[in-house]
């Protein structure tokens, strides 16, 4: 899987690259508008992480260029601009998702994962991992061919873990994923614990392996 990170802040680009490259992702970088245009002209990427404020031009123009060339690359905008207008404009120009800085790396990874799955597999979007089968379209989970009933939040959590395999994820990142800004405002991440406990129990009762590990007391990791 090839990913292009268009971001003028080099250290941030490297963090994203370092986090993603442990997976099966191959990351390339572009720090200026021109470098980015050169790359997208020649190569195809599975997903592009796009910062809007670039030296030499507006990131929105890169979106338009991709659209003009009829490219199928998935695009996720990562921007410090948090206005509704920017979000709407970006999505209308063909971006698949929009994330505001600062963000959790695990959240970015989950969104990239979801974009790539959607682009590549369409309606046959099924993840298989050992005895576990997840149908992203129908939002169903099978363990050893037997259906497991999960709540919406539990399903979201499972998907989040799968897209951040072997990564330590903090409780706050999970809370924000589940409840957005509300969790952040409340400064209270305890409700995550309940959902994780239930998810773990349901998977194990259905005969699934013990992939979901608790680390250091309050971190979580999906180990495969």
């Amino acid at each position: 899987m090839k990913i292009l990170i268009i971001e003028d802040e080099e250290t941030l680009a490297q963090s994203i690259g370092a986090y993603l490259s442990d997976e099966s992702y191959l990351c390339e970088y572009a720090a200026t508008f021109k470098a980015a245009m050169d790359k997208i002209d020649v190569f195809e990427y599975d997903c592009i992480v796009l910062d809007l404020m670039l030296p030499g031009g507006d990131g929105m123009k890169i979106l338009s260029a991709l659209k003009q060339q009829n490219k199928q690359d998935g695009v996720i905008i990562v921007s410090a601009r948090n206005s509704l207008e920017d979000k709407i404009e970006g999505l209308q120009l063909g971006a698949d998702d929009y994330l505001t800085k600062p963000f959790h790396l695990s959240e970015l990874a989950a969104r990239i994962y979801s974009i790539i799955r959607r682009k590549q597999f369409g309606s046959a979007n099924i993840i298989e991992q050992h005895e576990l089968t997840i149908n992203l379209q129908a939002k169903t989970v099978l363990i050893n061919e037997q259906p497991v009933t999960l709540t919406r939040k539990e399903f979201n959590l499972l998907l989040y873990f799968i897209s951040n395999k072997n990564k330590v994820i903090s409780k706050s990142a999970l809370a924000e994923h589940l409840s957005g800004e509300v969790a952040d405002m409340m400064d209270n991440y305890d409700f995550v614990y309940v959902h994780i406990k239930n998810l773990k129990k349901k998977l194990q009762e259905a005969g699934g392996g013990n992939y979901l590990k608790t680390l250091y007391g309050s971190g979580y990791k999906w180990e495969v």
Binding site: L12, S15, Y19, A80, P102, F103, L105
Partner: peptide, 17 residues
């Protein structure tokens, strides 16, 4: 401030790994 904040957060999350 937003970009440096993003950098710090990402570095800490990398360190967590």
């Amino acid at each position: 401030l937003q970009t440096p904040l993003a950098i710090v957060q990402s570095k800490l999350e990398l360190l967590m790994q």
